[in-house]
Simulated scan of single mutants.
Amino acid sequence: MNLWKIAFFVLAGLIVSGIIALVIALESPMDSDPLPPPTQYTPKGSVLSVKATRSDLEALANNYIRKAMKGEPLPVTMEVKDDVMLHSELTAFGMTFALMMHFDPVVLEDGNLMLKQTSMEIGELNLPPSTILMVLRDSVKLPPWMIVRPKEEEIFIHLSELEIAGNLQVRAKSIDLANDTIELEVTIPTD
């Protein structure tokens, strides 16, 4: 057999193997980071109940994302309407794709938030949500209080890790986006 034919078939086999490996890697998300253990909430100071709206929550979240990034470009922006939407951009193969993910917020027992993914939009691509979350986790630098969990299709927001002026502690009490009512608890330390 001709040497060029052998080289062609070897190269074609390597390319096909590479494509198959890429598809398998994208289809099977890696294990998610573990959630921190639930914190026992024992307020040490004055506790204030704060009522907020969707626009208040959106402004607060984007402000803390901006603060956590310390002057770097914002990896995600949050929009709060009837659900929570995260907007971002992903660059793959030299192309940039607009990415929008929809989540339902769930208040956990310890006052932290879990964003459960309901749908996503990324250009014309039809990829599983777990794959998009895996790519987001691995390619975008997020604040340390946002834990992306691709396998579970969720994002954990560790409110107790937020650095708030004066060592304030924040926890969520309830979120009802349909009625535009959000209740937070803010603890002001007494010492």
Rank of each mutant, 00 (worst) to 15 (best):
T91D: 06
H158E: 14
M95N: 13
S46K: 14
D33M: 12
T96G: 06
A98G: 11
P29D: 06
V84A: 04
I157H: 02
E121T: 12
F93Q: 07
I20D: 02
V80R: 02
L99N: 05
K44Y: 09
A25L: 13
P75K: 08
M85W: 12
A59N: 08
P38R: 10
L99I: 11
W4K: 12
E72M: 11
Q40F: 10
A68I: 05
I132R: 02
D191R: 11
T181I: 15
M95T: 14
T42G: 03
I24E: 09
M78G: 04
L133W: 00
L35S: 07
F8W: 15
I157K: 02
E163K: 14
S174P: 00
D31G: 07
D56R: 03
P34R: 10
M85Y: 15
A52K: 07
E183R: 14
T187A: 11
P36Q: 04
V107M: 06
P34F: 07
H87N: 15
I164N: 06
E27R: 11
N126I: 10
A98M: 10
T53P: 01
A165Q: 14
V10S: 04
K5T: 14
E153V: 00
P34W: 04
E72V: 00
I182C: 03
D31Q: 13
S160E: 10
K81L: 11
K141R: 14
A21G: 07
P150F: 03
G45M: 03
T77C: 00
F103I: 07
D82L: 08
F97R: 08
P75C: 09
W145D: 05
V84T: 06
G71Q: 05
Y64S: 00
L127Q: 05
L60N: 01
S17D: 02
D56A: 04
E89K: 15
W4C: 03
P143T: 10
R137Y: 05
M69S: 07
I65S: 01
V107W: 03
E27I: 00
T190R: 12
E72Y: 08
D191G: 15
V140S: 11
T181V: 15
T118P: 03
L86G: 02
S130P: 01
T181F: 12
N63F: 13
E161D: 15
L125K: 08
V47E: 12
V10Y: 03
T187P: 04
A12D: 01
L57I: 06
I147E: 00
I182Q: 02
V84G: 01
M134D: 03
K116R: 15
P128F: 08
P29K: 06
I175W: 01
I147G: 01
P43T: 08
L115V: 07
V106Y: 12
A12V: 09
E152C: 04
E79F: 09
M101K: 05
A25Q: 10
G111F: 04
R171G: 05
V16Q: 00
L86T: 02
V135F: 02
I182S: 02
E161S: 15
V148G: 02
E161G: 11
A178L: 15
E121W: 13
F9M: 13
V16H: 01
S28A: 11
Y41F: 14
D191T: 12
N126E: 13
L125N: 10
L142W: 10
D138G: 05
P43R: 08
I132N: 04
G18P: 01
S17P: 00
V50N: 08
